[in-house]
């Protein structure tokens, strides 16, 4: 799956320079609102991910860099 994702990524990158932005910079006021941020408070989301990672079997793809757990 990882390989397919990377190949799709490459195709996306190769076509990057020929596309006009369909949401103009002056139309991005709502997107720029802090309530639309995927990670408005990194110190809090990092802690929350740690709480789950220590108690659940699943890990990864949480949107943050991760790191050592040491959850013995």
């Amino acid at each position: 799956m990882q390989r397919t994702i990377f190949l799709l990524g490459i195709a996306l990158l190769l076509s990057a320079c020929s596309v006009e932005p369909w949401v103009k910079p002056y139309e991005r006021d709502r997107i720029a609102d802090p309530i639309m941020s995927f990670d408005r408070n990194p110190v809090s989301s990092s802690y929350t991910h740690h709480v789950y990672e220590a108690r659940e079997g699943a890990r990864g793809a949480t949107g943050s860099a991760g790191g050592g757990c040491g959850c013995n």
Binding site: Q2, I5, E27, D29, R30, R59, A61, T62
Partner: peptide
């Protein structure tokens, strides 16, 4: 102008 999507994959 109202919709933001995110996709992530991670192999460990």
């Amino acid at each position: 102008r109202n919709l933001l999507l995110g996709f992530s994959v991670e192999t460990v």
